[in-house]
Design a protein around this nucleic acid. Sequence first.
DNA 1: TATCAAATGAAATTTAATATCACTACCTGC
DNA 2: GCAGGTAGTGATATTAAATTTCATTTGATA
Lengths: 149, 149
Amino acid sequence: MEIREILEAFRQYIKDKGLRYTKQREAILKAFLRADGHVTVEELYMQLRKKHPGIGFSTVYRTIKLIEDAGLATRLSFDERAERFEKTVGTDHHDHMVCIRCRRVIEFESPRIERLQTEVADKYRFQILSHRLEIFGLCNICRPHKSLV
Amino acid sequence: MEIREILEAFRQYIKDKGLRYTKQREAILKAFLRADGHVTVEELYMQLRKKHPGIGFSTVYRTIKLIEDAGLATRLSFDERAERFEKTVGTDHHDHMVCIRCRRVIEFESPRIERLQTEVADKYRFQILSHRLEIFGLCNICRPHKSLV
DNA sequence: TATCAAATGAAATTTAATATCACTACCTGC
DNA sequence: GCAGGTAGTGATATTAAATTTCATTTGATA
């Protein structure tokens, strides 16, 4: 999905909700799409200031929520103070392994896990809208190696 | 595992770390084990005040972390402001489905998902210490039913 | 183009979580 | 059992994320 199409989808979403498509909202979405990985609102705001010094903090907060509601972002929670967001378009769905020592984040995909989730949800007649699988532990660099013992 | 045994395990953990086993720590662990479901630190504190009015807020925070470190509690994050904790002993490991409308939380077990997680982790030589799978969506009561359309 | 509600931005506020620090009490060695 | 040092506690202050408030601006429609 091209950037242009994503912007258009966002505009459409906003319109459908009876809201207004503003410069700020577009700028924030663009910056968010450009940002890599998992950004906090703070980080996004800092990035935005460079090109759009006038933009307000609250607006970034408000807009990231809109973007999330539109299904273009996912909220992550790596046990930090601030929440992080990542884009859901352009990349396949994936989950995260977080190294609790070096804080590195490894992304992985597992269609089989996804399928099992759907099975479980069906059993409970639960309609999945999103999910979040976070594995915490030690990455291959930080874990104790046998050879060192 | 009986309460008495859990307390003993906690004492042992604390001792092994060269820390001190205090009345407060015991009281907090007891209250936590008694509390049902998924409590916030705030809720736990309120509960504790009834029996132990002198107990401090900071101590509850500090101790819940200790309990977590000891492997007796898991940190949850249901996209709320405050974090929640649940006990990991006495119950089998499970994951959560959170209804974004009524906030109901459904617990489920899936050994198959667990196994797949282990497989993925192995592939990356990642050592799992804990994990968290949260599915967000609409529960069977809140989801739109075909019959109503 | 005028109108008006929605959106914005600056500042204030709320709230969770952490840090500080004087005082307390746990524990080890005697 | 007692003393001393030391980790723990609790009240308060502080930090930091997120939200609210409100006067002003701006987008879209009639």
